[in-house]
Design a binder for these strands. Structure first.
Lengths: 188, 188
DNA sequence: GTCTATATTTTGATAGAC
DNA sequence: GTCTATCAAAATATAGAC
């Protein structure tokens, strides 16, 4: 793997663990085993490197979600597959975490991958919900409003589940939230 | 208001806006209109001040939630009141935000108020859910599993809703998630 | 209680040799 | 492409006068 790739990968990890504000160029260099000059040769600076790292993380996350949402099965089964896919719950969401960081939200280049990932995810799940409502594969409540509302609730359960788990220092609240959401979505 | 109080209040605001890692003693002093010596006279350091600020924020949040959850009405109405109470959506949750910060999670004194607030909130909402299930005031799905599961999902929708709204730079995804959750909880 | 030095380390970056 | 200075500013305090 090239030095450039190692720098991006190290930045992905550090952004996940410590956020943008908490990640220093120095820490990135050390983890990547690269010197100052090397980093500033390949990237203009911290924000440039972060933009590359976030773009890559966003792409990876999207692929993981699509894998479950495009699987065979009823709408309920596909949503359940997405909610219950293996996750490192206590590490949280690589992308969702960035939404808390004021410097990320303030910089259009950094916010764009975050915004686009969630916009795509909510839209994609709304499609599955709409199919499920039409086919009677979801609880009646899912068909009461806009499928986008149900989809937003589903994505929020995941993001909020991470928050609850990290607050508790225990993955269990995440799994409770997922079970609670699935019980509400299950067709009669 | 005393200098000590101004320091705590400034810290509450800065922790909310910028998180623990992103908040410097210097910024706290400037916002509070206090000097270095003054701050270090009243508090041992940044983490001591943050602990005081978080304890106060936790207490305020809990009072706001209890106000809605103890209101008159059916379980569905009380949960709807909690979910729809006025919020500064784009500012996010003062307490939930801290769960993302590795230094907060690593320090028992800082994590305690975060952990306790969510443990209390999930428990309190679980009580309301249990009452609602017994009285037939919620959708059938809410009675399928442990009330703690439904409660965790409800709290997660709020916390995740903040994430989606900040990612979008727009409060709407938060409101969508709340509407979606309420549609699923509404009795038939 | 509050203030003004002072101190050490880290941050985020640039310059220029190799 | 990578390395080693070097740099100005900020973070996080401590010391001691008033």
């Amino acid at each position: 793997m090239s030095t450039q790739d190692r720098l991006i990968e190290s930045t992905q990890e550090l952004l996940w663990e410590r956020g943008y504000v908490g990640t220093s160029p120095r820490a990135i260099q050390q983890r990547a085993g690269a010197g100052q000059g090397s980093m500033y040769h390949h990237f203009h600076g911290k924000s440039d490197l972060a933009a590359a790292a976030l773009a890559r993380s966003a792409e990876q996350l999207r692929a993981l979600a699509e894998e479950r949402l495009a699987a065979p099965g009823t709408a309920y089964q596909r949503i359940a597959g997405y909610l219950q896919r293996e996750r490192e719950v206590l590490r949280g969401c690589r992308i969702g975490r960035m939404a808390q960081d004021p410097e990320v939200v303030a910089d259009p280049r950094l916010r764009a991958p975050v915004e686009e990932t969630f916009a795509w995810l909510r839209g994609r799940i709304a499609e599955v919900v709409a199919e499920g409502v039409a086919a009677g594969e979801l609880a009646p409540g899912a068909g009461c409003g806009d499928p986008a509302d149900t989809a937003a609730a589903i994505v929020a359960v995941v993001q909020g589940g991470y928050v609850l788990a990290r607050a508790a220092g225990d993955p269990e609240p995440f799994h409770q939230a997922v079970r609670g959401a699935l019980a509400l979505l299950r067709p009669a």
